[in-house]
């Protein structure tokens, strides 16, 4: 194991004293026609997205390749409940939502987290040993200061709005590189709001206990939200080389070329 991991956290006093409130949880899925013996995949979305962003292409495509594929909408997102409490929702509650979903699956899944979902997956992996973990353009565990500064340079007005609690910009220019404008508008129009607390939490560095799950890190040099240097640093933490897809935007599962990304992810999963 490489450096950067703290000791195992056993004492979780806040979770014992005050568990997150129960909300309805949306889990979308696409299953292979016949059982294939392949591990289930559980996709976790990022800021202001929902399970829908994986249902668009990846769930059916993964099922086609024999994987039972699931995607969860974190509370306050997509078709899950909790929208009214979104303003008070914290990262801890998102971690809870993912652990709850895992416990419903028939066997140990491979967790695939995108952006903020990539950070959540790392926080889950310190508690739960999954079959594998895939981090797509992950929000960095070492804190999003660099990402925020780069956003402030490119889009000062939007950065300021985010700093005071607005949702990060989810416009087609930010999310996509090669999508035709109408499709970009349609998909970006499906994004919602994000919890300002969760967004602020993205800025601060964290550490995790030992992670014993094999991890794949995927990124793109053309990401306008998560800088390449952050993706590379995340990969170093796990002692792996990041898999890079130039020409694709931050939303690797929606942008043109997404099929190549999924194929590479599933090829890696097949080696586990």
């Amino acid at each position: 194991m490489t450096g950067g991991f703290g000791p195992t956290t056993v004492m979780r006093r806040l979770d014992w004293a005050s568990p997150p409130p129960r909300v309805h949880r949306e889990v979308l899925s696409a299953l292979p026609a016949e059982p294939t013996g392949k591990p289930p995949l559980l996709f976790v979305h990022g800021v202001a997205h929902g399970a829908w962003c994986f249902a668009e292409h990846w769930l059916p495509a993964a099922a086609e390749r024999g994987f039972p594929a699931y995607a969860v909408s974190l509370r306050g997102h997509g078709g899950s409940g909790g929208a009214r409490r979104l303003g008070r929702t914290t990262m801890r509650e998102y971690v809870h939502d993912v652990l709850q979903t895992i416990a419903e699956l028939p066997s140990r899944p491979v967790l695939v987290g995108h952006s903020m979902g990539g950070l959540i997956v790392q926080l889950v992996l310190e508690r739960y040993q999954a079959k594998g973990g895939v981090l797509l353009a992950p929000a960095p565990l070492h804190g999003g200061a660099r990402a925020f500064l780069s956003l402030a340079k490119d889009r000062p007005a939007q950065a300021l709005r985010t700093a005071v609690g607005g949702t990060l910009p989810m416009t087609p220019e930010v999310l996509f590189e090669g999508l035709d404008p109408a499709e970009g508008e349609r998909l970006s129009g499906r994004t919602g709001r994000e919890s300002p607390i969760a967004q602020w939490q993205l800025l601060f560095p964290r550490t995790t206990g030992p992670i014993r799950t094999p991890v794949l890190v995927v990124g793109t040099p053309d990401d306008r939200l998560v800088p390449l240097a952050d993706v590379e640093r995340t990969a170093r933490r796990y002692g792996v080389e990041p898999l890079l897809f130039p020409g694709i935007g931050h939303d690797l599962m929606l942008d043109a070329g997404q099929d190549g990304v999924l194929a590479a992810v599933l090829d890696w999963v097949d080696t586990l």
Binding site: W16, A17, V23, H96, L99, Q100, I102, R127, Y128
Partner: peptide
């Protein structure tokens, strides 16, 4: 919250 296995929570 305390009773359950920490890596396999009981359903909400």
């Amino acid at each position: 919250p305390f009773t359950q296995y920490p890596d396999f929570p009981m359903p909400d």
